[in-house]
Write a protein that binds this DNA or RNA. Structure first.
Length: 293
DNA sequence: TAATGGTCCTGTTTGC
DNA sequence: TGCAAACAGGACCATT
């Protein structure tokens, strides 16, 4: 499940192997994978051909390829925006490699080197061509304008996020997953951060002290940094592999997916509770349920 | 079978 | 009380 660390691993792979190259051919095999590109698959393909990838960027779980070679040099630039959803992968492979079952989009380059493949089993992810806009001193694709800065952003301001979080009237895990508040955190790292901060997911945000909210955000930042290190270490430089299995951070998870296993801190069996039609993992002793649920 | 989950969409509730 | 904003929850997918 790609969250911030996994997406950053992919971005680094793209930076190393795609930046500077010129797109020569684009094939869309599943229209749903470019559904956010409103003018449609044909337009998407046509407008990418001949463009050079200038740089690779990321905010939260979104990543994008800044494009050059625009006919209108005075206009703000454009970018290929990508989101991996739950099962999306961006793979760099020799053109001769057999097509994957769930190959959705293929980008070939003018240099005939490795091609970029968007493979996505569940088609929750997708690609689109977007205008770049200026927001709060940053240049981002239009659909990313409302996404908050992530904890690895040099301009991330934790004090502002703490204030905004405490102003909300919701459960703390919902706030962690709110990409407009702070981006990049998904179900896995939310559970890990809550465990580190000793908070139950249902704790109300407006009852958190500033110190506790800050501790939680620090924990989220820390766990994602550790995961990035683990994912990067096992990363194969020849292939951009987003699959969560490729990194080895999975064995460092304290609670996520660990139902019944001992809490690394106190030994109590980890519990699983339904949360938003999915699961939340926590330690019953370290993270007691709030009194008024 | 039910579980998986990030985002989008819609209907409801809350706060001013 | 009326309105807008905030919030909660389901839909979307494919596979095991």
């Amino acid at each position: 499940m790609p969250e911030l660390p996994e997406v950053e691993v992919v971005r680094r792979g793209l930076e190393a192997h795609v930046a500077g190259r010129v797109i020569a051919e684009v094939e869309v095999f599943h229209p749903r994978s470019v559904r956010r590109h409103v003018p449609g698959p044909v337009d998407f393909s046509a407008r990418l051909v001949g463009r050079r990838v200038q740089a690779t960027r990321r905010r939260g779980k979104y990543l994008w390829l800044e494009l050059g070679g625009d006919a209108h040099a005075d206009e703000p630039g454009e970018a290929v925006l990508g989101h991996l959803g739950m099962s999306g992968q961006l793979l760099l492979q020799p053109p001769a490699t057999v097509d994957q079952t769930h190959l959705r989009v293929r980008l070939r380059f003018a240099d005939a080197g490795p091609e970029l493949r968007f493979v996505d089993q569940r088609t929750f992810g997708g690609l689109s061509l977007e205008d770049l806009v200026e927001v709060d001193g940053a240049t981002v694709p239009r659909p990313v304008a409302h996404i908050g800065r992530d904890p690895m952003d040099p301009a991330f301001d934790i004090a502002t996020v703490v204030r905004a979080m405490r102003r909300k009237h919701t459960e703390v895990k919902r706030a962690l997953l709110d990409q407009t508040l702070v981006s990049g955190i998904g179900n896995i790292y939310a559970d890990e951060a809550l465990w580190r901060a000793r908070l139950h997911w249902a704790r109300p945000t407006d009852k958190l002290s500033s110190a506790k909210a800050r501790e939680l955000l620090d924990a989220a930042t820390q766990v994602m940094n550790e995961a990035l290190g683990a994912g990067g270490t096992s990363f194969d430089a020849l292939y951009v592999n987003v699959n969560g299995q490729s990194g080895y951070f999975e064995r460092s998870l304290a609670v996520y997916g660990q139902e019944g296993m001992p809490c690394p801190r106190c030994g109590r069996p980890i519990r699983r509770e339904p949360f938003m039609n999915r699961s939340s993992y926590s330690c019953p002793r370290c993270q007691p349920r709030p009194r008024a649920a």
